[in-house]
């Protein structure tokens, strides 16, 4: 009895330090981990597994190896969707970023009214996709919109159904999405530009640098981390784009504005080809992870990007 008591106490001590005390800390994060596991991690792992099956969502699934991926590489619609995504991303990396940089640089150079401009530019970014599409479906309507207005004044290049033509549907969608995004970039870049050391501009000015040269040699290098980061989030956002395409054209006409996400959606929820849809999801995840991993590896190595 007298011998066992301290041993039990020791056991209790071990139990307490290795179980009770950690539990008292972990209990704060366990609910968060469970919800994340249920909503994101478990379904993501299932998604990867489904990609190697021919499952239709209800009956038995068969393991079919890489067949879904083989099918994808021969699927002309998927190829079209991939090219459309690349086009989407390419335009987005140029136009909204250029407008964002222009707006931010000009805003950084004024003293009065900065707050009001920033406010106006940022409002469209707060809008849901259904709002942006409501606004621009009207403004790009051949009968009521800007095109009709211009046509009344003799300028007839925009008085047609932008979203109804195979040659213009995708660009119309990119435009609407870009209108929604550029103001956010202005605000993002402006915040970075106001951090730039004023003396650098002073020195450049004394050296006789023009405004363009100052922008090129002082502003751009100074905000590079923010710029690179914005390109990364644009790459991800445009690769995964769904809402604007689904609402404006549904990927049509005749797949002209199809993107990978809308194609995945059709395969999963209209054709019930769950395995095939899952393989598109895997390709999307891989494609997004390329710049993401480069970014993190370079950051880890201490690159100032």
């Amino acid at each position: 009895m007298t011998k066992a008591a301290p041993r039990q106490a020791a056991h209790w001590q071990v139990f307490k330090t290795h179980f009770v005390e950690p539990l008292g800390r972990w209990i704060y994060i366990i609910p968060l981990l469970i919800v994340n596991a249920v909503v994101i991690i478990i379904p993501s792992v299932s998604g990867i597994l489904y990609a190697f099956t021919d499952w239709n969502g209800t009956t038995e699934a068969n393991f079919i190896g890489l067949d879904n991926f083989g099918r994808l590489f021969q699927d002309a619609v998927f190829f079209r969707a991939f090219i459309n995504n690349v086009t989407y991303t390419g335009i987005f990396l140029i136009v909204p970023i250029a407008v964002g940089l222009l707006g931010a640089y000009l805003l950084a150079g004024i003293r009065h009214g900065q707050v009001v401009y920033r406010l106006l530019y940022f409002i469209p970014y707060m809008f849901a996709s259904v709002i942006n599409t409501q606004i621009w479906r009207y403004l790009l309507h051949p009968k009521h919109g800007v095109g009709a207005f211009l046509a009344d004044h003799g300028i007839t290049f925009l008085d047609f159904a932008v979203f109804g033509r195979r040659s213009t549907a995708l660009y119309g969608i990119v435009f609407v999405d870009g209108w929604h995004t550029w103001g956010f970039l202005v605000v993002l870049y402006l915040a970075a530009m106001t951090q730039v050391d004023k003396e650098l501009y002073e020195v450049a000015r004394l050296d006789g640098a023009t405004r363009l040269q100052q922008f090129r040699h002082v502003t751009l290098p100074s905000i590079r981390p923010t710029l690179i980061f914005s390109m990364l989030i644009i790459f991800i956002g445009t690769t995964l784009v769904f809402d604007h395409v689904y609402i404006l054209t549904g990927g049509g006409p005749a797949h002209a504005s199809e993107v990978m996400s809308t194609y995945l959606y059709t395969q999963a929820f209209e054709n019930f080809d769950v395995g095939y849809a899952a393989s598109i999801g895997v390709i999307l995840a891989l494609w997004v992870s390329v710049p993401l991993s480069i970014f993190y590896v370079l950051r880890r190595r201490g690159w100032q990007i």
Binding site: P43, S46, Y50, A268, V274, G281, V282, A285
Partner: peptide, 8 residues
Amino acid sequence: PAQLFIVP
């Protein structure tokens, strides 16, 4: 990406 896990 949501596209990876929305179907499962």
